[in-house]
Design a protein around this nucleic acid. Structure first.
Length: 437
DNA sequence: TCTGGGGTCCTAGGACCC
DNA sequence: TCTGGGGTCCTAGGACCC
């Protein structure tokens, strides 16, 4: 077999998973005490439920539900726009609490973390279960939000634990009890097993997590790829996924997509959405000092399928000015006239550190330097006066549309000299800067 | 069930080389 | 020109996650 054997740690682990309960909604309730005990929903800005408090869930509200449906289900629901800055603060404070217990904390997402407690029982004078319960209580006491924790021998088992008795729960899964927890769980509910793999396993008579865990290694290695072999080991109490401490400070790719309701077949409008996506993605890339070597342009039609092309860039860049030509080219390939689209998106891929040293003999270095200066200024202005204070003229038609829809971008626009003849230039794919005053 | 906006990693297969 | 073995790199696309 060409595959390397999986590395399995041979000593017993104490892996904790922390999962905040209805995180966004809980943060709102912690900040606004008058909302406690009431159904709270966030996601107002997108028109769908991003998070629902347990009071709202009890009334049948689900993630992704349209807000008009929510209003029908519970009239007294507080529907709020998502306030990511506040949630990030709560998130950081939660991680800070966890680091008091162990330096090995993996910030898995805004509301989830893994903590490796292996070897710490002695210093806390108690069992892993007691440490876990202590962590849960500290979060509740200090942050005013609740979390569910699970502790076991591996990350996959810890995840099962935190989900077991949500909300506000602490579940310990010792090695000898693993089978009790796995028996009732459908295989598709296991972290890392999606609908496709679940369907495949069902065909082989595997329906529960326990049946999967009990399957012999020969079967697992013959029919499944490495990630699933790893899950199989983890379910059997053999830890293979390490708790990774490094904070995320880079990206493989950066994407931006926007769905519009209703769908549109207006080429100018759709391209403007693209252009805006590109600018947003570039802003993020510049913030992390990254430059793209590939640009992916895609649209999604009413059939919910994505149609995209990938364009290789001659020079790594994070400046829309240099990407506008590629964007236009990609768009022309992907866009079909008289077809309604519901979404556009771009992906900046093949990201490399933007150290400014990647030029060839033929590049116009003074011009590149000038662009760098311009965008540096753009980023500074945006930081000071808000996103898109300065943007490309080709992104403008989205604003007009937003006004029609009564969207949030209702700042009146004043056209400057630069902005004249927008459509013509835009059709030609010429990049432009438009200054919003 | 198909909600929306981010992401990651893995694998198979082709191109190319010796 | 084809035969065969073997390796590496890249890309497209699949599958999952929150």
């Amino acid at each position: 077999m060409k595959d390397q054997p999986l590395t399995i740690r041979s000593w017993p682990q104490g892996i904790l998973h922390v999962d905040a309960d209805a995180f966004f909604a809980s943060c709102e309730q912690a900040v606004h005490p008058e909302l406690r005990g009431r159904p709270v929903i966030t996601g107002k800005e997108r028109g769908i439920v991003a998070a629902a408090s347990y009071e709202a869930k009890a009334m049948g509200v689900k993630r992704g539900m349209r807000l008009f449906e929510v209003r029908r289900l519970c009239k007294d629901a507080a529907i709020l726009p998502s306030d990511y800055e506040t949630y990030s603060l709560f998130s950081m404070r939660m991680f800070e609490i966890l680091r008091r217990f162990s330096p090995e904390v993996e910030e898995y997402s805004i509301d989830e973390a893994f903590v490796d407690l292996t070897g710490l029982r002695r210093s806390f004078h108690g069992s892993y279960g007691m440490i876990a319960e202590n962590i849960r209580q500290t979060i509740e006491k200090e942050l005013g939000i609740t979390a569910s924790v699970g502790i076991s021998l591996s990350k996959v088992l810890a995840k099962i634990g935190s989900k077991h008795n949500k909300p506000n729960s602490c579940t310990i899964i010792p090695g000898r009890d693993i089978h009790l927890y796995l028996r009732p769980l459908p295989i598709g509910s296991i972290w890392g097993i999606g609908p496709n793999t679940a369907a495949f396993l069902n065909k082989h008579g595997i329906h529960t997590a326990l049946q999967f865990a009990e399957k012999d290694e020969i079967f697992i290695n013959k029919y499944l790829s490495r990630p699933y072999q790893a899950i199989w080991n983890e379910l059997n109490g053999r830890s293979v996924f390490p708790v990774t401490t490094e904070a995320k400070n880079s990206y493989q790719s950066i994407s931006k997509a926007k769905t519009f309701t209703p769908p549109s077949d207006d080429e100018i409008f759709i391209f403007a959405q693209m252009s805006k996506n590109l600018e947003n993605a570039c802003i993020k890339a510049r913030r992390y000092n990254l430059a793209a070597t590939r640009l992916i342009v895609f649209v999604r039609g009413q059939d919910f399928r994505n149609y995209g092309v990938e364009i290789k860039l001659t020079l790594p860049t994070s400046y829309p000015y240099y990407l506008m030509g590629a964007l236009k080219g990609g768009f022309t390939k992907v866009y079909q006239a008289n077809t309604p689209y519901r979404q556009t998106g771009v992906v900046l891929a093949g990201l490399v550190p933007d150290d400014g040293s990647r030029y060839t003999l033929f590049d116009d270095i003074p011009k590149i330097q000038k662009m760098a200066n311009i965008y540096e200024a753009v980023d500074r202005l945006s930081a000071k006066y808000g996103k898109h204070t300065v943007h490309h003229g080709s992104s403008l038609p989205t604003k007009q549309q937003a006004q029609h829809e009564g969207g949030r971008e209702d700042v009146p626009l004043r056209k400057t000299e630069l902005f004249k003849g927008e459509n013509k230039r835009q059709r030609l794919g010429l990049p432009m800067l438009n200054i919003k005053i």
